[in-house]
């Protein structure tokens, strides 16, 4: 086998590409419609269809389906066309609701980042405080167990009522989605730190501060990062419906706007954008999380 094939790890990429090709082809074939056949339709029927806009005449005066009035799921070509259209003017702003795709991505990323970072900060702080004291951990654990499974969206009416501002509510929904796994995992990691490390810390006469930052936090780091990873995922899931329900501009709300426009190709485009944004954020998180962990 040539060296470059091994180095670039070509096989999985090739399989991925062919799978993509097969899926696109299947999608295209499943959604493609045959050309309009006049058959034994009467002139009256044809006139009604033309009047309704189902069919139009092409340049040779033959009837064809109206491409602007497609029913059913649009094919990959229609979605590709939509993508090209959106990416041709990513930074435009037409009034309050029609912002370019780059704006929408930016709104979602900033909303998500503020909520997630605030939750990470508060969650790690609270988790360490709880984890340092077995008594506190045992007494607070029941509350955590009840709060953790509540869907972050369930807090939304209460948050909207309390803070009154939808912008802030959307951020707080992300916060609520992200905080519980971080608290629980941090507390668990801190309370389960190996006795040996604490003994070394006391041998070396570490004060409280050094003990926390040199031993406890690094020792609990893998557990904390695992908690942040869970938080990250649930926050990413929560941000889309939060935008939809609150009408806050972003890639989540884009799906809903396109649905209101009855533009199904637009809906598919928005779903793709959500996926790509989530993937990019996840890559960023993994890049940041690397180096914090250690092997026993």
């Amino acid at each position: 086998m040539p060296d470059w094939i091994v180095r670039l790890n070509v096989a999985p990429k090739l399989i991925s590409l062919s799978l993509l090709g097969v899926m696109l082809l299947g999608w295209h074939l499943a959604t493609a419609r045959d050309a309009f056949v006049q058959g034994n339709l009467s002139d009256t029927e044809l006139m009604t269809m033309e009047f309704n806009g189902d069919i139009i005449r092409d340049e040779n005066d033959n009837y064809i389906f109206n491409p602007a009035k497609i029913s059913g799921i649009p094919g990959p070509m229609a979605v590709a066309k939509k993508c090209r259209e959106e990416f041709s003017h990513p930074f435009h702003t037409n009034g309050t609701n029609d912002h370019g795709i780059a704006h929408l991505v930016w709104y979602t990323i900033s909303r998500f980042s503020i909520g997630f970072l605030a939750a990470a900060f508060v969650g790690i702080f609270v988790g360490v405080m709880i984890g340092l004291s077995p008594l506190l951990l045992q007494s607070i654990n029941p509350f955590l167990q009840v709060l953790k499974p509540i869907s972050p969206l369930a807090w939304m009416p209460l948050l909207l009522y309390t803070v009154q501002k939808p912008q802030l509510t959307a951020i707080l929904v992300v916060f609520m989605a992200a905080i519980w796994p971080t608290i629980a995992n941090t507390a668990f990691g801190v309370s389960n730190i190996r006795e040996d490390y604490l003994r070394v810390a006391s041998l070396l006469q570490f004060n409280w501060f050094r003990r926390l930052f040199k031993v406890i936090l690094p020792g609990a780091a893998p557990a904390i990062v695992a908690g942040l990873r869970i938080s990250f995922g649930s926050a990413l899931v929560a941000v889309v419906p939060a935008e939809m329900l609150l009408g806050e501009l972003g890639v989540g709300y884009l799906t809903w706007i396109e649905w209101n426009n009855l533009d199904i190709a637009g809906v598919l485009f928005a779903i793709l954008v959500v996926g790509v944004v989530g993937y990019a954020m996840d890559l960023l998180f993994n890049r940041a999380a690397r180096g914090v962990g250690y092997a026993e």
């Binding site: 490390y197 003994r199 041998l203 690094p218």
Partner: peptide, 29 residues
């Protein structure tokens, strides 16, 4: 009655900080 630098311990389980390099494990002491 409390641990201190005058009675250093070599542990059966090594008790090295796995997030520090060898050098840093000694340097911290």
């Amino acid at each position: 009655t409390a641990p201190g630098l005058d009675r250093m311990v070599v542990f059966q389980s090594f008790a090295l900080m796995p997030w520090l390099t060898c050098f840093d494990n000694v340097r911290v002491a």
